[in-house]
């Protein structure tokens, strides 16, 4: 570390006029720290007092709405309201003044570029949720049994904390290509060249590999997410249950198959469903790494391009609707799943 000079930074942190910063934002700050939690608790407690004043018979039919009302309000405002406009828009032409029925959908679904987009989304759909679940489950279950569980989890979790702006540069250090005559600066090609004595590969540009390379970036980022949730579910399994099974002479594999897996199943479905939806609306990785070039385009990025580059709201809306429709099978699966949990009670 001989070349390292001490970190003598003129820290602007110290020059900041904190007094002004805080006093200007004081009302907001107070609102944040005190007001928000108070308002939320006050809402539920206050309204419950009102509900209790209702006749006993009508209480059960009113009370649930008090509890779901804030959620329905926010989701209605932020997601449903814009989406209704989008769905309507998807049946109109580019200018938005002539009804074209399914015209936008027909045009898009016969466009060669969109077909590649759909193929890529299918690839994401097949690989991304599966790999995230596999690695997430593996890490959650295995790390539960080793002494260094906490550091392992922290390290696996770290990619979650990296913004997608930094993601591009991180993966440059993995996938970068240099001419065979130069030393490789990407670790993957360094391994290919120095250990396997092969020729370096342009992982991001070569259409044989690039979709897999991009999907893996997504998997890398989301595995920590799956691991944390699955691990929370695993920790929720009463230890007594496992112990009782062991006392009965069940081996570890049976315990995993007969007790752990069924009890974790609802959570696995949640993580799986979330990952399927994330695979459908994947955007960041492709947007940052290739902008959809080299046959890597996907639905959400194409939609973004239609919306902001082409200014074609008809196409963008139709793509958003396709995205929403693609989720329906997953939802039906979920409905079955949680009716089954209900029945088991």
């Amino acid at each position: 570390m001989d070349a390292m000079t001490p970190l003598t930074v003129t820290l602007p942190m110290l020059d900041v006029d904190w007094e002004t910063l805080v006093s200007v934002n004081l009302p907001t700050l107070l609102f944040v720290i005190v007001g928000v939690p108070l308002a939320l608790v006050g809402y539920i407690v206050g309204l419950d007092v009102l509900v209790r004043r209702l006749p006993k018979r009508s209480q059960p039919s009113v009370r649930p709405w008090v509890w779901v009302a804030p959620a329905i309000f926010f989701v209605g405002l932020i997601l449903v309201y814009p989406m209704v406009g989008t769905v309507v828009r998807s049946f109109f032409d580019r200018r938005g003044d002539a009804f074209v029925g399914l015209g936008n959908f027909v045009r898009l679904l016969t466009d060669h570029g969109v077909l590649i987009v759909l193929r890529n989304n299918l690839l994401w759909l097949l690989l991304y949720p599966g790999l995230v679940l596999l690695f997430g489950l593996l890490l959650a279950v295995l790390s539960d049994r080793v002494k260094f569980e906490k550091p392992v989890k922290s390290l696996i979790f770290m990619p979650m904390a990296i913004s997608f702006v930094a993601m591009a540069i991180i993966w440059q250090f993995v996938y970068y290509y240099k001419d065979p005559s130069e030393p490789q600066t990407g670790i993957l090609n360094a391994v290919v060249v120095n250990i396997f004595h092969g020729l370096p590969i342009t992982w991001i540009q070569d259409t044989r590999f690039n979709n897999f390379a991009l999907i893996f970036i997504g998997v890398w980022g989301a595995t920590g997410f799956a691991m944390v949730i699955l691990s929370a579910a695993l920790k929720g399994i009463p230890a007594e249950l496992l112990e009782a099974a062991r006392v009965d002479g069940a081996n570890e594999r049976t315990i995993f198959r007969r007790i752990i897996l069924p009890l974790m199943m609802p959570t696995i479905v949640v993580v799986g469903t979330t990952m399927v939806i994330f695979a459908l609306k994947a955007f960041d990785v492709v947007y940052v790494m290739t902008a959809g070039n080299y046959n890597t385009d996907i639905l959400a990025r194409r939609m973004y391009a239609e919306l902001y580059s082409a200014g074609n709201y008809a196409n963008a809306s139709a793509l958003a609707v396709i995205l929403l429709l693609a989720v329906v099978p997953v939802l039906i699966f979920n409905l079955r799943q949680f009716r089954a949990v209900e029945a088991r009670r």
């Binding site: 540009q205 902008a291 070039n293 080299y294 391009a305 902001y308 580059s309 082409a310 200014g311 074609n312």
Partner: peptide, 14 residues
């Protein structure tokens, strides 16, 4: 050029 034309131009180069 309109930005989608420009994006197509760049992609065409590649």
């Amino acid at each position: 050029m309109p930005s989608d034309m420009q994006a197509a131009y760049w992609a065409a180069v590649l």
